[in-house]
Simulated assay, not measured.
Amino acid sequence: MGDSDSSRRSVHHALGGGAVADILLWKKWYPSAALLVGSTALWFLLEVAGYNLLSFISNVLLLLVVILFCWAKSASLLNRPLPPLPNLELSEATVAKAADEMRVQVNYALSVAHDIAIGGNLKLFTQVTIGLWVVSYVGSFFNFISLVYFCTLLSLSVPVLYDRYQKTIDEKLGFVCNIAAEQCHKIDNKILQKIPLFSNDKKIQ
């Protein structure tokens, strides 16, 4: 029981430990279900019903503005409470945190590009190339809206499944990763042997 609780806490902590983690792990059913239903409805309207994204967003905002305006006017005439809107502004702390997180990600991407272009890191180059090829291959089967919806479904299913079956999944993934690492090592050695510089070094040694 203690191991199960600690593993669940680790998954929650890995996802940030905040409201986003609660939604992805379905700890609060209402926002998780609302995200699932809302994303499904949006995907249906844009992909199946054929609505244009820009027109859809404009119409939703127009409807929202009209409702809020009529609510405010009727509230002032009938002495009713105004729309319960929160304070609509971003704090400096929120903006600074988002900018700092973006800076970390951009610096990481730049460091990877530097290691490939300047450092000549063959292993990293192979990993990035395979990753981009997989993304390109998967993206050829979906348009942008369907891909975002697919990622949303994965976000609402994979973390909660991993949280429940973490031990079994870790065992299977460890076995697969060991096999993949062995195969990648063999491929890297074959590639290096075909490069004259590395093959000459090996002969000299």
Rank of each mutant, 00 (worst) to 15 (best):
H185K: 14
V148D: 05
K123L: 13
I179K: 08
W133D: 05
I179Q: 08
Y162H: 07
L173E: 11
F141P: 02
T129P: 11
I195E: 02
K194H: 03
A181G: 11
L110S: 03
V112A: 01
A180P: 03
G139V: 06
L161T: 07
E182C: 15
Y108T: 08
A180F: 07
I145V: 15
S199L: 11
K186L: 15
N107M: 13
Q193L: 09
G131S: 00
D115S: 12
I130D: 07
R164L: 15
L173H: 06
L110P: 02
L132A: 06
L153S: 08
Q166P: 03
V148N: 09
F150E: 00
I191R: 06
K194S: 12
Q166V: 03
Y165I: 12
A180L: 14
I169D: 07
K172R: 11
V134E: 01
Y137L: 15
L122F: 01
V106E: 06
H114R: 15
C177S: 13
L156D: 02
L173G: 04
C184A: 15
K186V: 12
V112T: 01
F198Q: 03
S140G: 14
V128Q: 06
I130G: 09
G120F: 13
S199Y: 14
V158M: 11
P196G: 04
N107F: 04
K194Q: 05
E171K: 05
V148Y: 07
Q193M: 09
Y137P: 09
